[in-house]
């Protein structure tokens, strides 16, 4: 009881190799979820591979296909990255909404996804920005769109021996507007009761959409990427009825539950309300 087997790889290759040889090893990044869970479960034996020694993991840079954010970039680095502020503003905003300064200094963008908590703040913008998770293993790299990354509470598509290298975010089209909402009970240090991210490609000079993406958090076992929104392409978003329809359509795909943060009933209402508010905020109507 109470032992931690600890390994600190120096390179990505070493890390991937180690993970392949040690299927029981967990990747330690910021530790803000992992260490808390470990403590809450009575500090059981654990095998950790700490990736914070690998600088490559924290890199953020431009690729031809989009912007790459290393899984090991801290939430604070994501929040303060000028490129992200400019091109992916709600990712920056969502990052600012994570926990506290101390948490953001430790926690990583990769950890926020790999932990696969339905309430993870940064996941929602990553979904609507159509981010792809870059997964590595000894057999090489593969990609998975983030909306398909989560398979259950605490579970992702990643198999033993695989780890998250980072995300590639395609540059949004010029007509894109976005917004993010974190509905929580208290202003600081809280998990979302309901989280919403919205991305809309507007038709030029109009309040109607070419394309709408909505992601919902804390409303089911995994973050929800709303499917079938194409049917609203071309709809007039300045119409209250349309907003209501989109919000209710989105809500249909959520499966909120009752917990200490809110009842199923209240969450349901707040999904609808926040989706409407987010669309209005994105297209700048009151």
């Amino acid at each position: 009881m109470n032992n931690i087997k600890y390994f600190l790889p120096k390179s990505l290759e070493e890390a991937v190799k180690y993970l392949s040889d040690n299927n029981d090893a967990k990747v330690l990044a910021g530790g803000t979820d992992l260490i808390v869970k470990w403590k809450k479960t009575g500090c059981p034996d654990m095998h950790l591979m700490d990736i914070r020694g690998i600088n490559k993991f924290a890199e953020m840079n431009d690729l031809s296909e989009g912007f790459f954010i290393g899984a090991g970039a801290t939430i604070e680095q994501v929040e303060s990255c000028e490129k992200i502020k400019a091109d992916f503003p709600i990712l920056s905003e969502a990052a600012r909404n994570v926990g506290s300064v101390q948490v953001r200094n430790l926690a990583t963008i990769g950890g926020n996804s790999c932990n696969a908590a339905p309430s993870a703040d940064t996941v929602l913008p990553l979904i609507v920005y159509e981010a792809e998770a870059v997964i590595v293993s000894v057999s090489g790299e593969k990609r998975c769109t983030l909306k398909d990354f989560f398979v259950g509470p605490g579970k992702t598509v990643m198999r033993p021996g695989e780890m998250l290298k980072g995300f590639v975010l395609p540059k949004p089209k010029p007509c894109t507007v976005v917004s993010f909402a974190k509905h929580s009970r208290r202003a600081g240090m809280d998990l979302a009761t309901v989280g919403v991210a919205v991305k809309i490609c507007l038709k030029k000079g109009e309040k109607s959409a070419e394309e709408i993406s909505v992601a919902l958090g804390a409303v089911g076992p995994v973050p929800v990427s709303v499917k079938g929104l194409e049917k609203f392409n071309g709809a007039d978003l300045s119409s209250d009825n349309v907003l209501k329809e989109i919000a209710e359509f989105s809500f249909e795909q959520a499966s909120p539950i009752t917990d200490v943060r809110g009842s199923k009933d209240y969450r349901s209402k707040m999904i609808v309300q926040n989706v409407k508010d987010c669309i209005c905020k994105a297209i700048k109507i009151d």
Partner: peptide, 9 residues
């Protein structure tokens, strides 16, 4: 940078 030292090994 500030960290909560109870969460850092």
């Amino acid at each position: 940078k500030t960290v909560t030292s109870c969460l850092v090994l």
